[in-house]
Design a protein around this nucleic acid. Sequence first.
DNA 1: ATTATTACCGCAAACGTTTGCGGTAACATT
DNA 2: AATGTTACCGCAAACGTTTGCGGTAATAAT
Lengths: 332, 332
Amino acid sequence: MKPSPTLKKIAAQLNVSISTVSRALKDHPDISIETKRKINELAALIEYDPNPYAVNLRTHNNKEFAIVVPSLSNFFYHSFISSIEEDARKHGYSIFIYRSSNDVQIELEILKNCRLKRVSGVFISITTETKDIAPFLKLDEYGIPVIFFDKVPAYELCNKICIANEQAASLAALAILKKGSNDVLGIFGDPNMPITQVRYQTFNRVLVEGNPVIRLQNVNANSADEAEQLILTMLADYNGTYLTIFCMSDEILTGVMKAVQRKGLKFPKDIGIICISDGMIPKLFYPEITYAETSGFKLGKLALSRMMRCIAGSSFAQTIIDESCLVEGGSL
Amino acid sequence: MKPSPTLKKIAAQLNVSISTVSRALKDHPDISIETKRKINELAALIEYDPNPYAVNLRTHNNKEFAIVVPSLSNFFYHSFISSIEEDARKHGYSIFIYRSSNDVQIELEILKNCRLKRVSGVFISITTETKDIAPFLKLDEYGIPVIFFDKVPAYELCNKICIANEQAASLAALAILKKGSNDVLGIFGDPNMPITQVRYQTFNRVLVEGNPVIRLQNVNANSADEAEQLILTMLADYNGTYLTIFCMSDEILTGVMKAVQRKGLKFPKDIGIICISDGMIPKLFYPEITYAETSGFKLGKLALSRMMRCIAGSSFAQTIIDESCLVEGGSL
DNA sequence: ATTATTACCGCAAACGTTTGCGGTAACATT
DNA sequence: AATGTTACCGCAAACGTTTGCGGTAATAAT
């Protein structure tokens, strides 16, 4: 456990004061060129680096962000995290990863941890049960900016970076209309989740409104397995008319694809498939699945740039919606 | 930016010294029951929590682990990270995520960062170019335990938690032999990577040794796309004899699956497929792909428990190999 | 020759803890 | 009555920085 180089040691070596060393190292004009040279040389030689704990104690400045997500087994969050990490490093920031497991209690603990550590900022996708906004305001009181992403609270006065759920659902619906298939099956996730409701409502509105010829059926599935079973039983009496399946998410899509493969159905010949996705899963199949993109990567870039602005002093709350776009595979 | 509660404030409120407050809060026997009660009450009321920076400055103890990986877009690392995060939180640890992008220079920077932050421990999967072991020994000098996982250095005297590459490759080979198909195509990744070499050698040895009837062909692909192209051209003159394809990794597998779907080949009827994988990708298809499991989750558990032992004082180096097992899908 | 200016540098306090050591009162022991 | 114990508690230094302020010598201005 060898001791680290400190200002004190450099000062002692060179017979100058600690303050002189400190100032020299940050190129303060009060220090002569010659002294600076000597100090910088020695510092480089013994590989001096400031102790971040001591620095923080004085300045209350660290270079750490926290990212809090409900789950880590999720492609979308992965690309978000990856995206943030990339840029954060360039700015000299490190990132903490926290998983709430969609548990409000754990989320609370995590937020407290962030506060104690006085991280420079928090990116968070809240749990589906999070109702109380107070803990977040508390972070704000301590001067820690909070950027909500993906799963955001209804509360107005905060920074939110969202996926364009309406647009994505709408794009998918329009793509189906354009192809001209009239039988559509929409598969959605947990009906209690706001994200499900938004996608459901928009998809239904855009698809059906003014298009009386469309026969749309909607179902819900809480897991990939459930989606698979659902499709299997529904396709048991497959009458041969061309059906288009819309999957609200990657998880639903994986279940659907299992069923489709099991039935030996060809897409786009026998059946059409379209989904909302980050893009990872759709590209595993051939032809690739057509999807309305919700990019964690782009969201991350937006979130980080918003964060940087907050740190620079911007205090006004803003909601940014990242636009979606249709990525054509060959599944429709 | 409201000020945090401190020992000093509690002390002032209660007309006792800072040391008394500090000791009372950690149930030191020198402090009377009555005093402890008062102090604990006030501390709870104003929500006092020790400043981790001040604590660290004194004690050099923090509760932070760093995980360093070459890439974040990798299922195996995801489950590893997820696994560590879960248990670490229970022990009161936070985790830093760092990505080296397989760049030695960045890796060096990250290691330096870890040293400066004096994290409690580092989990790292090194880059394919990492030759110099010195930076890691340096961490050790500062009393920071390093646990290598997955991609580990050849150097002996360190803690390594590895996938059973030989066993996994062997299991796959044995499974193929058991099925009795004689034409085998092995697809491997970058031939310069040790992991490729080990899997290649073991697979070839087990499959061919003592089985002169086996016709094995090996190829290398550096990406999913390359694997896809490779398979497409090789299957162009598909002569109808049953072929079994072995994929060394998830990435290779995704490319192969693209090609197989494109060709409209049925497995296990037309073709056999087997791979080494974490299990995520193989389960996306129907029938599910048979694979020799390399579990990031299990590896994480092993790594963390090893880390805890290191922190508790164990200083001897150990290499742990996590056993693989064959997970039967229906692709063979 | 006195005063103002400049260039450089150090003192010391502060950030919020932890902890060795010493101190005081009250009580028990000879 | 002098001494030894015990139960509590505070002083002060230390961890490694940052920074306001004050100080000294050398030079420039009067």
